[in-house]
Structures are given as C-alpha cells and as structure tokens.
Write a protein that binds this DNA or RNA. Sequence first.
DNA 1: CGATAGTTTGACCATACTCAACAACCGTGG
DNA 2: CCACGGTTGTTGAGTATGGTCAAACTATCG
Lengths: 249, 249
Amino acid sequence: MSTAREIAQTTRRLPHDGMSRGRPVGGEPHVRSDGGLEQLIRGGRLAVVEQSFADSQGLFAEGDEARFFYKVESGVVRLSHLLADGRRQIVQFCLPGAFFGLGALRLHATAAEAIGGATVLRLSRRRLDEVLCAEPATGRAVLELLTVQLAEAQGRMLMLGRKTPSEKLASFLLEMAGLSLGDGGAPGWIHLPVKRQDMADFLGLTIETVSRLFTRFRAAGLIELADPTTLRLKDRDALEEIAEGLAEA
Amino acid sequence: MSTAREIAQTTRRLPHDGMSRGRPVGGEPHVRSDGGLEQLIRGGRLAVVEQSFADSQGLFAEGDEARFFYKVESGVVRLSHLLADGRRQIVQFCLPGAFFGLGALRLHATAAEAIGGATVLRLSRRRLDEVLCAEPATGRAVLELLTVQLAEAQGRMLMLGRKTPSEKLASFLLEMAGLSLGDGGAPGWIHLPVKRQDMADFLGLTIETVSRLFTRFRAAGLIELADPTTLRLKDRDALEEIAEGLAEA
DNA sequence: CGATAGTTTGACCATACTCAACAACCGTGG
DNA sequence: CCACGGTTGTTGAGTATGGTCAAACTATCG
C-alpha cells in the first residue's frame, strides 16, 4: 500500500538564524499554545531540519527508534497503527502547527505518513530533553501538549466505541471544519486532502460506509461537495445534533 | 445508575512522616516507574489525603474543576465519558499503583468512579506545578506517565476501531492478566472486580456480547471461570493469537 | 485515448444489537 | 426457614445494520 520510505525526500537544514519564513500558506489556523516550544525552534537550539514528504510517504514506522519529534508546517500527517492482516487505525491527523512524535518512549508507538504531500520540521528529542532539564518552563509546554493529546485521544475512544457511523462522520466533519477554519479557499469551503480510505480508517468504518454517508449527508442538505475532498457544511447545527446523538440521519 | 456523590466517603489526612504503610494488599503488581512522584508523596510535599470510595461512587465528574490528581492504593477506578442518552465509554481502568487525573487541563475530561470499593491518594495539582518548576527531574516523571498513557490510549483506539469482538475480549483479558499478576489468590487466577457492563463499556460492545464471548471462550478451553469475576487463562498462546487476529474464535 | 486511482452504488449476508426471558446470587426481613 | 426484591449474568429469537463482494462511474494524467 505504501512504497513510502524508498522515495527520495527533500531535506533542508535550516540556517539557525532561521525561521524567518512566514506562516505556511494555508496553515496554522487554530492557535495551539506552543508554549515555549516555538521559541526554542526559533532560537535554533533544537537542530531543526525541514523535510518534505510525498503523498503516503512514511516519516517513521511503528517500532522505529524515536530520536526525533516533529512539527507540521504544511500538509497533513497521519499517525496510525497497523494490524498484521492490513487493518489500519488512524489515531490522529496532524494539521499544520501540530506537534507529534512526543508521545513516544524509546520507540514510536505509531507509524507516521504524509498525506498528499507535507512539510515538517524535524526536531531532536534528545536535545529537547537537555533543554527540559535546564528550563522547567519548557517542560510545562510539552506537558500541556501531551495533556491535550491525551484528552483528544480519550475523546476519540468515545467516538470509536460508542458512536454510530453517522455520528462518527458528523463529529469528524465538525472537528475538521473547526481546525481548518479559513483554509484560504472560498469562505466556508474546506479542502481536506484526506481520502475516503483515511477517513474510514480514522472512524473505524469501511470506505463504502463512509461514501454512503457522504451521499446521505449531501441528500439531506447537511453538506455540499465540490469534489470528493472539498466540502462545505451547510447545516452545522443539524450536524452537531447528529454528532451528539440527538438527531437521526 | 450511580447515586455516587451523595454517599459519604472516608477521608483521612495522612501524617506527613507518612507512607510507612506497606504496599496495598493485592496491589502494585507491575512496576510502573513512578519516577520522582513516589518520592514527592513520601516526602509529604503534595498535601496527600487518603480517600475511600464505595462501589460506583464518583471521585469526580466530567467537567469538574481539576484541582487534584490521584494514585490508586487499592481497588479499581474507571475513567469514562458519557453521552447524553446514557451510552458510556470507559477509557481507562486504573489499577493499584496507577496515577490518574494528570491528563487534564483546567477541567477533567472524564469522570472517575470507584469499582467495587477503592482507596486512593488525593494529590494537589497546584502543588505539583510548583514542585515542577523547582525540580525539572520531576517533570520528566510526569511527562513519562503521560506519554505512556497516551500510547495506551492510542493502542486502545486500534482495539475499538478495528478489532472484532473476540479480538477485543482476548486483548482485554491478556492486558488485565498482565497487569494483575500475582493478585494474592491462587497462582494463575485473577480476580477482576470489573463487571460485565464495565467490560462492555470498555470494549465498545454490549453486555450480552461480552457474556456470550465468555461462554464461547470457556467452551473452547481458553479460560476457566470460578465465578463471573474470577478467572484463569488456560491457553494464553491461543488467546494471543486471537487478540492479534491470527486465529478465529 | 487507455490506464490508474479514487469514489459511488448495488445486492447480499454475517454479525452484533435489541428485546425478552430466565437463572443465580445477595442480603433483608417477615 | 423461605419469600422477596435487587443486582448481575446467561441464553434465546428476531432483526437492523454495516461489512463484503462486485461492478460502474469519474477524474486525472501520460
């Protein structure tokens, strides 16, 4: 499914006066509190390297040694688990601005792959550890990041375990809409590079079910589709009721 | 379903020469690296209070202000999300030795309830924050705890989203068996105060399905049941194959 | 144009849920 | 002692639902 790691990838060492680049084109929409991390990156104290990855190219695999963590500059990165027979569970979509790879011990617990081309900053975990000892304040930032990610993960468990397929998709659409507000395109329209298979693997459904739900939602006037990956929420309230299980559809 | 918070609960302030008490009776089986946390507790620098809770009694609710975090001394605590219509997802079982309540921002993202009577140490988050600033080493410990919990949560998402019911139960039994090794009872026998409904809400199944699976597993000679909550794994290898999806049943 | 990847739709079916009854077990109190 | 209600667990019958398999459709690109 992924030829991944064979493809050559762009790697560019940043000059560590660095980071004068403006915010990535469509990115950094929701203001995640980077805490001290952003400053550390800007200060060039974390051995920052910018890397670009092609669609479906892997950044690291489950079980890889966790020497780095990352910040998404542009594009989307998916974190996933894989079962022996090919079943896959995506545990997180990382949008621009998001950090990932922190929640790992010695080895990465998930695989990470780019979706539709992505650029990330690669940061040294070891270096971070050193900084952490010197500056307690930074630890706070990391701690908060992990805390948020844990809360998100637990929320997703509710979705996976107890929500119906339509509730799942409604929740997902609302979450994505909330995260990618103002994507650069026409107002209200959001472009998700995420394909049906990715959505299915995120929601714990099959690709067919996801597709059927899209047609159902479209027929019900809840959403509008320009092309399969570009959509607009026409009735956010109704979607929210569905997501909470207060309404059918 | 839970009259919870009305029931009176035992609260005992510990003398802060404190913690001379031996390990809890059946508890602290797997050596979680408490890092610096254990020392902090022993040092009496975190305003430790011991509390006892009756079966199904709540420690805190979803949305409560997160002023404390906890360590389980004895019994089991469940962390769960609740949907408006009563659907529940248990996101974590906290066995003796486990910390919980750290993965919260200002408010608790889950509810916490005792299962079958539990005793916990209540610790001040604010005090922890202060200590964190003074002692970076402690931050590491907390960070590692959160990291482990995040990894566990992500693993559970795989289970909820992509595993079949029998795979779910097999995974669950193996996990619990691994955690509660040497429970004091006869060797190999594990006593789970966790009821069928709790298992169902943890695995994202109905109580009937869980029950049917138990009979199926028992008939297949995979497990042995003394009473509904006391069991022994008769064929761990087979269970592992089922959990991984390598075998049917 | 054909080729490929992605999506949609249909028909069928296995599975786990729903509803319901029943059994085992508990402490309480007549 | 047994009757009783409450809680928990097991089992059965029927069904809705989402998965599986298969085919058609669309778009993009060389």
